[in-house]
Each structure stands twice: as structure tokens, then as C-alpha cells.
Amino acid sequence: MIPQNFTYQAPKTLEEALALLADGTAKPLAGGMSLIPLMKLRLAAPERIVDLGRIPGLNYIREEDGKIRIGAMTTHYEIETSPLLRARCPLLATTAAHIGDMQVRNVGTIGGSLAHADPAADYPAALLALEAEVRLVRAGGERTLPIRDFFVDVFTTALEPGEIVREVVVPVEAPGTGTSYQKVAHPASGFAVVGIAARVRRGDGKIALARLGVTGLASKPFRADAAEKRLEGTDGAETDLRAAAAAVTEGVEANSDLYASAEYRAHLARVYAVRGLRSALQAA
């Protein structure tokens, strides 16, 4: 389990890092919880690594103008235990608690997880349901994308060569919003066989807002728009939840592996959508 030779660079500033990454030939290293195992198996063999871990100022969770900004190098554990997130955007904190194990959460970062874009990662479901934004930077420029435009396909994001995730922006939840992250964890890897992030708000007795982020089911995480539409305006009765859940998998080509066939995985997604919505409604 020894990686191929590589050049290691540990810049002290973001500018320096972006300059080192600019030509797109180096791989940025954040927490390394996915990249390092891949390198040890030699499935990844980058010639140059730019470690972002020594750059100050990339690790923070703060509220500004009604939004919560999370630095890319913030660890899962910090997100899981952040009093600010627990109080103002609990979905992200509870989702972080489901990632891997304690060791992974202590080292892995939100920016690294997003950039790696494992189709079974946990954050994307929550961030999609939260309609989060990601701020991306590269040498000489930055842009902000809605999270749904960030995920392109399996392990593939909108990041251009030389570009990295700088920050994740999530909303401060309005009162009366209920959220839940429900996951079937693979017993070996801990990755989501399916993971459902549900976010609902009632208004005048009806469901005024419904957001469902889905991970693990397909080649990329996605928002279950049809399910959301089917739920909004209903009373949120059990039959409404089931009807919405049915829409989660419509037209979706589900992943299949040794642990869960496409058929079973789709079934789990529907079951967990109901459970997620139910629990989110209870919290609303």
C-alpha cells in the first residue's frame, strides 16, 4: 500500500496554492480521506500534490447576511459539532455526523468531499436540499455556482483544471423548517447505499416548501424535483409522502453493486424518502 512517487508542495497562502495548481497538472490535497487511499492502491497516481492544509483562513463556519459560510477546509467533525450549524442549519450538521467514522470526520473536509464527488457521499444530499452555493476559485478568478450545477457525473464536477472549492454557503433556516438526513450505510465502507436529505416547511397548514436531496442512488447526487412538486401544497399526510417518494426514483437509472441491486436501491430510496420526510415534518 505504497503510492507512486510524487512531488509534494505545501503552500502557505491561497494565492500561492492557486498558482501551483494553475496549470491543472497537480492534484489538490485537502483532508485526503479519499485521495490517499486511492494513491496507496495506485488507482490515483498524481505526479504533484498541493497540500491545502497549511493555508490559514480556509477553516471557518460563520454567519453573514443571513447565510452561513463554511470554509472548504472545515472538517466534518467541526461541521457536525458546530453550535452555529446545530442551531441555524441543523441539516448539514446532522448529515456530517453520518460520514464515515470518527477518524475520517476528524480529518476529512467539506471542500475535499465535494471536489471528489463520490456518488455515494453524504454532504451532497444535504447541500442540494439546502440549495447551497459553492464558491470556486482559481488563479485570477472566482465564481459561485448553485450546488445543483456543481455535480456533473460520477466523480465529476464543474471544477475546471486548476480550480478548487473555496467555500460552501448554506442558508440560515427559517423558523418552522424541519429537516432530516436518513441513510442506509454500507456495512463495510459506510458510504450511503442511499441517503435522503429532506427539508420541509409548513405554511397555512400545507407544505409550503419541500426539498429532497438524494445521494447514492444514481451516478450523481440530485434534487428530486418531481417529488418536491408533488408534495408542496399537500397536507403532508402519509399518502402524500408516499406519492412524493414514488417520484424520487422515476426516470432515475439506479446504481447497482454487490450489496444492492438497482431495483432494491431504488426501493430503499423510496422507503427512506418517506422516512426522511416524515421525520422532517415532525421536526417542522
Binding site: L41, D101, H186, P187, A188, S189, L258, Y259
Partner: peptide, 16 residues
């Protein structure tokens, strides 16, 4: 051997 790593071969962990 398609369960060739601890990512795919599940041994019970303390929480299980």
C-alpha cells in the same frame, strides 16, 4: 475476488 478490500468486505464494527 471482488470483495478485495475492507471497503467492500464488511466485518462488524463496534457500533454494529
Amino acid at each position: 475476488l471482488v470483495t478485495g478490500e475492507l471497503m467492500d468486505y464488511a466485518i462488524p464494527k463496534a457500533t454494529m
